[in-house]
Design a protein around this nucleic acid. Sequence first.
DNA 1: CTTATTCCCTGATTGC
DNA 2: TGCAATCAGGGAATAA
Length: 272
Amino acid sequence: MPELPEVETIRRDLLPLVKGRSITGAWVSEDAPRLVQLMSREEFARLLPGHRIEGVSRRGKYLVFDLDRGMQWVVHLRMTGRLRHSAAECEEDPYLRAKFSLDDGAWLCFNDVRKFGMMWLVDDWALVHAGLGPEPLEAEFETAAFAGLLKRRSAPVKALLLDQTVLAGVGNIYADEALFAAGIDPRKAGNKVSRPKAARLHDAIIEVLHEALGDRGSSFRDYVDGQGNEGRHQLKVKVYQRTDQPCYVCGTPIRRVVVGGRSTHFCPKCQR
DNA sequence: CTTATTCCCTGATTGC
DNA sequence: TGCAATCAGGGAATAA
């Protein structure tokens, strides 16, 4: 489940390894019919080689390879996608959905068990991410605007944190963790969250994402970084997937409910 | 416009 | 132990 900290870790890993490299070959498995968006996988594999990678950036959970001639190669890992740098050919793997050779002999290997991952080759990637909300770790994520947005919505605050148009990059793990840190019941309607609580949630989101980034992300199931190594933050979560285990603050068993169609973990005593 | 639900996909987990 | 049902979840599509 790569969210902002995981995608950012991959970006930082890959940047020095691929910057300045040219793509010499591309292969997409015919068993991944939905991987390439907006064009056929054949066209994608034909058009990508020859491009030079000038940088690697990120927007929300989207990883973006900035190419020459104004093109962008955009990757979304969704649930189980992994994008790894390999000094040699990608190893044999039944879930390898695509691979890309570079001009220094290295490869980028895209592995995705559940085939939810997506890629685009575009010349105006704003079209792909149109409507994404602010970047939570940038100054554009403002307390007042965030609190105002919550005030205008009646959906559960947890569902709003998962809405990428509200803010970009938060998924199920960090939504639960931020709500715990702010002491807010995830089921509470956005417009019932007080201004001070909304401000606290705003700060908690930033803090939780920063901490997870420092731990190179959370590896609960499938996530690995750009070199194939696990993160460490799964060892430090306070509520996510801790159903029935005691709250670290008050000892009350952590509860699991479904909010916005997603499993949600919270402390019924610390979060009201 | 909003919110809620379904779908995609397959390995891991749970229940009998 | 075996096998079917359920779970996991990001985001698009659909329904209301």
